[in-house]
Design a protein around this nucleic acid. Structure first.
Lengths: 356, 356
DNA sequence: AATCAACGTCGAATCGATTCGATAGCTCGA
DNA sequence: TCGAGCTATCGAATCGATTCGACGTTGATT
């Protein structure tokens, strides 16, 4: 045997004086093989420097690679910066890790160049973690290939298990609270409807293009209570984007200024808080600010954000469990997780009420 | 053909009236196949609902899976919370993404249960991103299997390309600056020497077990200047761990209190800053605090941490480039990247000097 | 003593594509 | 008109393991 070629199972088997099938069983730890036979095989393997069955060959035979893809949208760095995305991933790995499957991170901007690359990677299943769009070409590729698919808040498609939360109801509940406090002039800061770098007020045209379900639903939840209020779209779910949007909304004369800003995420809300501080507006005396997610933002302390708490890690776990089910050949049901309003220190009565 | 079985390339070829080899060439986009032939194949594929060659089979034949593993240490969540780890991953994906290889995240606590799982996953190469230990069983497995390996600041082993920075020199330079300011009683806060949950002062026993190179080198850099000062080990590289260590070091009578704390990371330094604030100590008047990394911690503003800036993203890019080289069959050289001291607002003369 | 069950090992088919060298058909020039 | 040269397609070997049913032994049962 040439030195540059790795030993194969057959070689090991030959050296151990058994058939390849027995050697395979030995490595698989089958109880059908005698301890001493197994030992002979292992010894032969050791002598040959054989490190165990080739994963590629085994994968082909089994039809499983042990790799689950996770689309996290846009550049990976942005996903890493989003505490919600991270918590979601953490929930996913919590379940998938012990199952012995690896998590393959995939940037969601599956444009042309990336798609044929994606087609080469052996995936047992895939999760659309933060970027489930119905018109994603990757979705169609994987669907056609028969790869089990799970979507977190989208995409909605035949054959994709959906893990959902009540975005609309949750934010509407928070909205009603603000309405009850007397707020009438509110605005909302939206996460990107699509990942195309668009910023600014959302108009009907913009709303009509395909977009993320969570973003749309959170928009609708606000509208349910306050009607079609101004909605400022951001280019990404990041603090500085929230600050930028917050400035645009708040840096106006007091009588036109919204008395409350409902941000679609805690990260964006943190940006709005920053904008308010920069404009010397007190929160909640001059303006109320609310978020969404119930994210872990320790650096906000002692401020406690009023927000809609969603079970992000549980969402990740449920998505991962759905994957496990699918891999077992079952068809898990869609899941709808509840959310709850958490009132913090960033919401209060509108300024008019206070002055009276 | 039964409905439950997916079509194969051979089936498509038969339907298109060509040989499997030609069909394969057609899908690979080879110029050797006529446009009309390719079209016939593609049409047949469309009719059969064939989504392209099976990645597993192709991988076996090619000997490539298109998956690169990245060990990020401990639970993935912790890695996600570490801005340096994230920046490193970002640098890696920046290079690997366009190459069409997927990034498989692997938790570094490759203990027994996980190892045989790892053995099943087809990896083209692996990067030890934040947890390169020489006695890692995963290292030996992959080494024996002949998987190309790159280590970021470790592990140091035959056959592992090392991407390194001058931890020791960098922190020593920062130390000399503090020494020049008059500091004589300093302490350091160390990242975990191993991921075993140990906290507390580092003694010789602890230092003698295998441990992370960067941690050791940063320790040595401090000792180079100040001698064997107290070193408080943390259980993980996190803000609250830094705060805990900071409290332990600073919550003592002023005459025994260190006048400067050199933390091994900016995250830990942020924790020390928090501890100082909680103890009503002014920085840098009462105590100087320095970090390492030059990490992006926007929430620290307006405070600017004195620190050793390392080119974290470049480190990631270099690691990824080394992987690409290895996959091309070349043997890239080890890399040593420079660091530089950045003086911020958290360091100054020791309090004695000020009072005089 | 003959039958049967249990058990450990083996053969052979299979997973689905890639790839190199060979072949057949075609064009072009002499 | 014949041969050289070129090109599109094909055949067959190969990648390296897994798995199921078959087979021969051995020990227990009646």
């Amino acid at each position: 045997m040439p030195a540059n070629t790795r030993p194969t199972l057959a070689l090991v088997a030959a050296r151990a004086g058994v058939s390849p099938s027995t050697a395979s069983l030995a490595f698989a730890g089958s109880p059908r093989v005698t301890p001493q036979t197994r030992q002979r095989v292992l010894t032969a393997a050791g002598e040959l420097g054989y490190a165990g069955p080739d994963p590629l060959a085994a994968s082909l035979r089994r039809g499983r690679s042990g790799v689950v893809g996770t689309f996290v949208g846009e550049r990976l760095l942005y996903a890493f910066r989003d505490p919600v995305a991270i918590q979601l991933l953490d929930g996913i790995t919590e379940v998938l890790g012990p199952q012995g499957v690896g998590l393959l991170l995939l940037a969601g901007d599956t444009s042309r160049p990336g798609l044929d690359k994606l087609a080469r990677i052996p995936l047992d299943a895939a999760i659309f973690a933060t970027c489930g769009l119905e018109d994603d070409p990757a979705l169609h590729l994987l669907l056609q290939r028969g790869v089990p698919l799970v979507g977190v808040e989208g995409p909605v498609a035949e054959g994709v298990v959906l893990i959902d939360i009540d975005d609309r109801g949750g934010i509407a509940e928070l909205g009603r609270h603000l309405y009850g406090l007397g707020h009438r002039r509110v605005a909302t800061v939206a996460m990107p409807l699509r990942l195309d770098g668009t910023r600014g007020l959302v108009d009907d045209v913009r709303r009509s293009v395909g977009h993320y379900r969570d973003v749309r639903h959170r928009l609708e939840g606000v509208f349910d209570v306050f009607g079609p209020v101004p909605a400022m779209e951001t280019a990404s779910n990041a603090v500085d984007e929230g600050e930028r949007a917050g400035r645009a909304l708040l840096d106006v004369p007091a009588q036109r200024r919204p008395t409350a800003v409902l941000a679609q995420s805690d990260v964006l809300a943190a940006g709005v808080l920053r904008a308010a501080a920069a404009l010397d507006l007190r929160v909640p005396e001059d303006v109320s600010v609310a978020g969404f997610d119930g994210a872990d933002l320790p650096w906000l302390l002692p401020t406690v954000l009023s927000t809609v708490v969603q079970p992000t890690d549980e969402k990740g776990r449920m998505a991962a469990r759905a994957v496990v089910e699918l891999l077992d050949g079952n068809v898990p049901p869609d899941v709808d997780l509840p959310v709850s309003v958490r009132l913090g220190t960033t919401t209060g009565p509108p300024p008019d009420t206070v002055r009276r």
